Simulated assay, not measured.
Amino acid sequence: MKKLLHWAAAGLLMLAAALPASSELTLPPDVMQYATEGINGVYSLDFDTAQKNIERVFKDYPDHPFAHFGNAMIAWSRYEYEYELSDDRQRKVFEQILDESIAGIKRWIKQYPEDPNAYMGIGALYGLRAMFTMRNRSWITAYFSGRRAIKNLEKSLELDPTYYDAYFGLGIYQYYAGTLPSVIKILAKIVAIKGDPDEGVAQLNLAREKAHFTSDSAKLILIEIQNTRNSKYYAPQKSLEYIRQLRAKYPKNPLMHYVEIICLYETAHYDEVTEQAEDFLKLIGTDPFYKDIYISRAYTALGTVQMQKGNFEQARALFEQGQQAIKNQEPSRWGVWNEVRLGEVYDVLGAREKAKKQYRYVLSFDDKWGFDDLAKKLLQTPYAVPASRDVGPLPPQA
């Protein structure tokens, strides 16, 4: 299930650029300029620039689907990336804007019922609502939102069969609905959730190859799929190829930079992981797009790669440095994951009491990120490096 939650963390950010060809016929050049600058702002995580330009689109086209969709995606991206899903106030802002955006596109559809852009926009927003409510374990709401998403995306294709951008959302649904963990499959049967992961991957590749605006989004989701271990689609070298293409295209985006670090780790380029993670850390505080909240990401990479290489004393030092570096920050997903990893390192080094203290510390936080079950398990049974000597993927595993 965590994989389904992550598709918005990358793909939906890029889907903010999904402005279909039909809109090009109705938006005048100045609004197209604002829209393009807004899109570039989202790609670069420059949300103030993005918001300013989306507001200009609203001024000339008050209910245009692109304006509403862009506004919701900016709110989501702020919550996801600026606040690392850790700020309840920003979550409420996002929820309100999402509701208003869906209502606004519904008004547009009443005026322009044959506009595929509207069905694409509202379908994507229903998909975002499905993901968000699933993260909060509101399974029934997530199910009905997902159904509405698919219905609207299929409607956009009915109106324009060459609208390949719609295959992005459809591919996500087919793949993730078809790869639900067993714990969720009982619920899936009750509400008749069905998916075909092979069809989903094929649709995502179709979007990657032919979509006008979601080609890059499809690459990001395919990276996620191709980095999933024990999967028939596992192809991390291809993921590394895709992310290097995207970094070349969007060099200012720090999260593209970090995804490359993840792909380097998955392809066992461990020295390059250290080199790139150190560069990433140096950019925090000097580049305006590399935020302080990303510090824990850098230390996760630096510490985990030393674990993977068997250098647990070095890993301990790095995770402890990370702990100190973020001690004045609000808790975040990556920060708490660092605490889990530090506990595991203590266990390997034989410092069981320190490890247990770490796991109790993890349990002291609200379980926003799903680490409680792992922390409880580690309190009962000390962490040990698997016989394979593989300490697991770099990103948080919950």
Rank of each mutant, 00 (worst) to 15 (best):
S215I: 07
L204H: 01
P29E: 12
Y173T: 14
N311W: 02
D347I: 05
L15G: 03
A398D: 13
F47R: 14
D196P: 02
K52H: 11
A375Y: 03
Y270M: 06
R316D: 13
E266G: 08
D271C: 04
H68T: 05
T179Y: 02
Y43M: 14
G310P: 10
G104Y: 11
W337Q: 01
A17S: 09
A8Q: 11
R389Q: 15
Q203V: 00
T286Y: 13
E320H: 08
D279R: 13
T304F: 01
Y359N: 06
F371E: 05
Q245Y: 06
A72T: 04
L222F: 03
D373R: 08
F66T: 04
Y81C: 08
K106P: 01
Y176W: 07
W139I: 11
V183N: 05
K185C: 05
E55W: 02
Y234R: 01
R148I: 00
H257C: 10
A18M: 09
R89G: 03
E55Q: 12
L157A: 00
A384E: 15
A177L: 05
K189Q: 14
L170I: 02
Q308G: 02
A315V: 04
T300I: 09
H269N: 14
G350V: 09
Q237P: 06
H6E: 12
L204C: 06
K151T: 09
Y290A: 07
E80Y: 07
D160M: 00
E24S: 11
D115T: 03
S138L: 06
R208Y: 03
G392C: 13
L159P: 14
R247K: 15
I295E: 00
K357R: 13
T179L: 00
Y81T: 02
V93M: 08
I102N: 04
K3C: 01
I97M: 01
Y164H: 09
Q111I: 10
I221D: 08
V93Q: 06
S138W: 00
T300W: 00
K291E: 08
Y361I: 00
Q203R: 12
L222S: 05
V31S: 07
L25V: 02
E278Q: 12
A277P: 13
K110S: 12
K377G: 11
D271M: 01
Y61E: 05
K110V: 15
F168C: 04
M14H: 10
Q306T: 07
Q380N: 09
A50H: 03
Y112T: 13
D366M: 06
H269T: 00
P29D: 12
Q174N: 07
G127T: 08
E154P: 13
A384K: 13
I150Q: 11
R89S: 10
E272G: 13
E100T: 08
S145D: 15
D88A: 12
Q397A: 05
S215N: 11
Q237E: 15
P386S: 11
E344F: 01
T214R: 04
F69K: 14
V191F: 12
N338S: 03
Y234G: 01
D87A: 03
D279N: 15
K232L: 08
K210G: 02
F365Q: 07
G121C: 15
